[in-house]
Design a protein around this nucleic acid. Structure first.
Lengths: 170, 170
DNA sequence: ATAAAGAGATTAGGAGGCTAATAATTACTC
DNA sequence: GAGTAATTATTAGCCTCCTAATCTCTTTAT
């Protein structure tokens, strides 16, 4: 959303009208959203060409990351940051396409376990090199230290918005 | 998407398996997407409480920015960065709620002109102060110079991804 | 003048988010 | 041990985004 960002001097002028408007905060905010959107679009375009959506890709990456039986729809939803209802839909289409399977738990008959199939694993392997190349290309204008600085600034914002720090075990 | 970001050392390990994986690029990429998502969520939550979506809010802000008759569905779609079909849907709901009106062009019977109604303008005025406060809060962990540095880094990425520089007339 | 091409807006159909409500199972409490 | 509460997964209904197709009108070419 919002392809044409307002210029900084325009924000200054608007701030005269709205005393709550902090120009530098707004500028950073708009650029953050816009850049995130652009980057998402690039990666999403690549994934779409390979007939997979961002959501499905995330699920498959999570399944590979855990590489064992500990994945339930609820845990995947939690890690992916979507609702369980959404995860049900994602798993539906992934299962329909043969990328994953759902297996009943022998202990607790409420819970299911989700596995990547061989086909799903092969699909992921065929996509990942191109995906990582795309990520590298997107970030190519920044030097190593600039990337580190960007991450530092972004994490300061994240900490503001989440109870704990960015978490990131595993 | 992706609440739990992989740790940097985990990326290093994965890079052994995938030679295309650039750890620092990937770390920056994941943090950018995650932060953008978090920030969007915060703002979207505020707007939702005021019974308006991000898309509708963007359209109303664009209408106010132009403050005259030069807005057509096509130009709004272009500026907002969505398809015309999407804009049609947004304008439908905005018109249904009495926020905007569509008027026929006297010259060219294909084109329409979109205007903010008084009610739409009042609605925007009631929302903006809270919105700007939210933006300031989100960016509060960063100093002024950190915000400027963040914008600089983000714009370098944007330039990589768009033919021209971030544009931003007006 | 008329046919073809182009441009504006819309419609139809699909995907993936969300919330809220439901069904089945397990855990708690007294 | 019976009843209530909590948990797991799902369904239903809504919204917003997309692409592709359609309809109307204007411009261009012949």
């Amino acid at each position: 959303m919002l392809k044409d960002l307002p210029q900084y001097d325009c924000l200054l002028k608007a701030a005269e009208r709205y005393p709550e408007l902090d120009p530098s905060a707004n500028e950073a905010f708009l650029n953050l959203l816009r850049t995130g959107d652009l980057v998402f679009e690039v990666i999403n375009h690549f994934l779409t060409q390979n007939n997979i959506s961002q959501g499905r890709f995330t699920v498959m990456m999570l399944l590979r990351r855990h590489w064992v039986e500990n994945c339930t729809p609820a845990s995947l939803a939690e890690e992916a940051g979507v609702t369980r209802a959404t995860m049900t839909g994602l798993l539906d289409t992934l299962e329909k396409d043969g990328m994953i399977v759902r297996q009943a738990d022998t202990q607790d008959r409420r819970t299911l376990h989700v596995h990547l199939t061989d086909q799903g694993s092969a699909c992921l392997d065929s996509i990942l090199p191109g995906h990582f190349q795309g990520v590298s290309r997107v970030m190519s204008p920044l030097t190593h230290s600039e990337r580190k600085e960007l991450v530092r600034l972004l994490q300061k914002i994240q900490e503001q918005l989440t109870p704990e720090p960015p978490k990131a075990t595993r």
